[in-house]
Simulated assay, not measured.
Amino acid sequence: MRHLRALCAIADTGSVRKAARQLGVTQPSLTTQLGRIERAIGGQLFTRERTGSRPTPLGRSVLCRARPIVAEMTALVTEAKDSVMLAGGARFRIGSTGNRAVAGWLRRLHARLPDTDITIRIDVSPNTLLQMVAANQLDVAFVHEVAGCPLHIPDGVRQRVLVQREPQFVALPATHPAAAKEQVALTDLAGERWMVDPSVDGEWAGLRRVFAAEGLNPRVVHGDYLTGADLVAAGEVVSPCQPTSRPRPGMAIRPLLGDPLTVRLLLASREVASPEAETNLDAVFADLEGSYREAAWTSAAYRQWLMFHDSPLLRSHAA
């Protein structure tokens, strides 16, 4: 089955590199595995081209046999897992992009499911996590979708919307003149260097759209947001950030005027086959919702934004 899944992944993604990422293995190991499969079959299954990997006639023949087998095995495993999903002693695998709600989500899950082995996978790429849900490597994934940059939702993966439109704020040095404002216009930061992580799906494309709409072309530094936070505090860059982010010494977090950059927050899972599994997913979503409200409430800047916009998000929390 491992070999058949590898062949299907290469065909579906059109690339050994992309297939390796989807499968959670290194590219060299997948290349070696493909070589072993081809030697066992006695022929070349894919042609390697500059644009990617394409099945040969032999490869297409093998894939026609492999896909039904993989689909049947996936269905068998899914149905078996659904029958015990979140039951006592079961395993529950969650994934998430970075978000302050995750810690509270885990705390709630552990409290409600003390006999369940709960594991977590954090990844900057929402699309990677969605592929892992589709491949039955994760049970659920909490991901974000940048406005204007839709995610690739695999077949068989469903979505529940946690927040339809979450505004993205900006982290800037506490000494910056704009830090004295309640809301910061993009034009206030036009002359600053922006730190952006290009490995986060849609992040750079979404911000580029926002800059273009404002007629701006600021300097951009590519890097990870952990390093970016240090550079913001040091006065070197500004950076987009989640509204639930907490400032560190030397940093201020402010809403962007007009909320030009937003994301949609989703909980993704596979389709379930039983009412019991559906009820369990409802509880998982409720745990995440409660944790997100808690994270939003404890963020002063976000709480103020929500109250100003009379958002229904925090009403149950305030009650």
Rank of each mutant, 00 (worst) to 15 (best):
S15M: 12
K18N: 07
L23H: 01
L34R: 10
L34D: 01
R39P: 05
I41V: 15
L45K: 11
R50F: 03
G52N: 04
G52Q: 03
R54N: 04
R54L: 02
R65H: 11
A66H: 06
V70N: 15
V70A: 12
V70L: 13
A71R: 14
T74Q: 15
K81P: 00
L86P: 00
G89M: 08
F92K: 07
R93N: 10
S96V: 04
L106M: 12
A111R: 07
R112N: 10
L113C: 10
P114T: 14
T116A: 11
T116K: 07
I122V: 12
P126I: 06
L130V: 11
N136S: 06
N136I: 03
A141H: 12
V143R: 06
V143E: 07
C149W: 03
C149M: 11
P150G: 14
R160L: 09
V161G: 06
P167Q: 08
P167A: 09
Q168C: 12
F169S: 08
A178C: 05
A180K: 04
K181E: 07
Q183H: 09
L186M: 11
L189N: 15
A190I: 09
W194R: 02
W194Y: 01
M195P: 00
P198M: 06
D201A: 13
E203V: 12
R208Y: 06
G215A: 04
P218V: 15
H222L: 15
T227I: 01
A234H: 03
A234R: 12
V238L: 05
D259Y: 11
V263L: 08
L266E: 06
A268V: 09
S269F: 02
A273Q: 11
L281Q: 05
L281F: 05
D282N: 13
A283K: 01
A286G: 10
L288T: 13
E289S: 11
R293M: 05
A295G: 00
S299L: 05
A300F: 02
W305N: 00
M307N: 12
L313P: 01
L314M: 05
H317T: 14
A319L: 14
